[in-house]
Write a protein that binds this DNA or RNA. Structure first.
Lengths: 110, 110
DNA sequence: TGCATATTCAACCCGATGGTTGACGATCTT
DNA sequence: AAGATCGTCAACCATCGGGTTGAATATGCA
């Protein structure tokens, strides 16, 4: 069987997609701007955005000729709940999160 | 680039593997016993256990002729920290977790 | 020793995934 | 209307992932 959880975790399994999510955490972005920091083609990024949208992690909205991508953090809630059952994690460790975020973004420009 | 996060999320993306983790939450189990509730072959389950072990989510230890599988919840911590940055989730919602767990286990026996 | 049990390995199939390039549709600008 | 920009689509390619089956390995037991 296939649950929404499958799609969310599968989407998160790719570092490019996690980097995109990290970028969208800052602000909504146009597809072209999302693609800018990456070396791969625009079409490839467009596919990644499709995967993220299918999983519900982002939404896309066309305004004029630009398509704006928006983070949808609600999609993460189910996955987060699932994971938290597997250990008594400390309450939100923001310092650790900042470190991970920095790592993700650093790996963008090799 | 490939980070440990990739492997953890990829491992979690499969419902069979999540079900195995849920089973191991109860207690350590032998490979044969892990495989018992599933309809797929033992070899397939063995592969799934390999994926889980490679991601660090479980460990395997041979005792005699039996290989015991043990949940390693620490591997989830990094992923959990990553996710919690994307939204202010409520502190651990155990009721929601129990529901998810029940869903996962119900899907085992169609 | 010899047989049964527990688990993995190897080869194979097939559909999914991640990337490319080139053409296309849609929209703004002039 | 023409041209430039934004983004997707289509076809293709290579690799990966999840499943199968059958043989091989490792241990326990009689």
């Amino acid at each position: 069987m296939t649950t929404p959880l499958d799609a969310v975790f599968a989407a998160l399994a790719d570092p490019t997609r996690r980097a995109i999510l990290a970028m969208l955490l800052e602000d909504d972005m146009a597809v072209t701007d999302v693609a800018a920091p990456f070396t791969m083609s625009l079409a490839a990024i467009s596919k990644h955005l499709g995967v993220l949208a299918d999983s519900g992690l982002i939404s896309r909205e066309r305004r004029g000729r630009v398509i704006w991508c928006k983070l949808e953090p609600d999609a993460l809630r189910a996955a987060s709940v699932w994971m938290q059952g597997f250990g008594q994690f400390e309450p939100l460790d923001l310092d650790a999160f900042e470190r991970f975020l920095a790592d993700e973004l650093r790996d963008l420009t090799p």
